[in-house]
Design a binder for these strands. Structure first.
Lengths: 155, 155
DNA sequence: CCTTCACCTTACGTTCACGTAAAGTTTGAG
DNA sequence: CTCAAACTTTACGTGAACGTAAGGTGAAGG
């Protein structure tokens, strides 16, 4: 009954808007990390951070429209970045190593950015096309307003 | 061997980057119109316009990430708009009717726009977050460049 | 007319992403 | 300690979106 760290799978599911089954499935295929050393049979426990992670997973899934397998690849990049961040927090790393880590992280980010930018671009294009069409239709409607002359005979 | 109007399903599939099976499937579930009165067994024939239509279908499917069933609904709106356009081209329609048609079309467009705008917004947000992260990483890299003092001892 | 693709229909198979049911166990409240 | 609720694993089921195989035409070149 504390305020953090005592979430069970049902709570998490409700929090992020999915089902326990889905969460277990994601864990099963390696999309979510299996909580290390949980005696088989014991309940899963989630921290707020893990909930956030799941939210991010679902967000990316929805926005990028990729398979869970592809998503796993993308997220392994995130994982790698997390490791990098952890290593960087220690400041006893050699600048050379530090540079390598940062460069690696940058690579991961760039790959994701490329994907996202492409999709965002396509969607923006579609949005603009729709807006364009909308404008034309609204224009025609205004035309009807301005010139209500002619035949007012309704049938 | 004319230059237009004589496309067969294999050609179309290659043109849009899919398979004949998928095209037939889309026709089967009503996502694509069944060419009226084709004696069963006879080859399907496609016009350039129908290819364009299919391209649009696939584009929307990819960008909106909706089920084919939902997509069918969205496209029925497109269908309705096509009908509207056809009716509007005849200029013997009463202004009252004309207004109704245009308003209906506007409704369809707005529903699509809402969906697209929402997704586009979310994606843009994600893109910006990634860019932000990228900037921070690049910043740290530049820091390494500016201050290459300290230990140059490799290992 | 013949051949040879590419196509036709029918129907069963497959993968992904979970849903659902069964039988037993763990937790937290009382 | 008790007991209901929520969880556990295992396993089979399901809907969507096609893939694939079989057996049989249609079409276009020679």
């Amino acid at each position: 009954m504390s305020e953090t760290g005592a979430l069970r799978i049902g709570d998490v599911a409700r929090l992020v808007g999915t089902t326990p089954r889905t969460i277990r499935y994601y864990e099963e295929i390696g999309l979510l990390p299996e909580a290390t050393a949980r005696p088989s049979g014991q309940h899963r426990s989630y921290s707020e951070a893990e909930v956030e992670r799941l939210r991010e997973v679902m967000r990316l899934k929805s926005l990028l429209g990729v398979s869970l397998e592809e998503l796993k690849t993308l997220l392994s990049a995130e994982e790698a970045r997390a490791v990098v961040r952890a290593q960087l927090r220690r400041d006893d790393v050699h600048p050379e190593r530090r540079r390598a880590l940062l460069t690696e992280a940058l690579g991961h980010i760039d790959r994701q950015l490329e994907l996202v930018e492409h999709r965002a671009g396509e969607l923006a294009k579609l949005e603009q096309e729709l807006s364009e069409t909308r404008k034309r239709v609204r224009g025609k409607l205004r035309e009807l307003d301005k010139a209500p002359a002619e035949a007012f005979t309704t049938t």
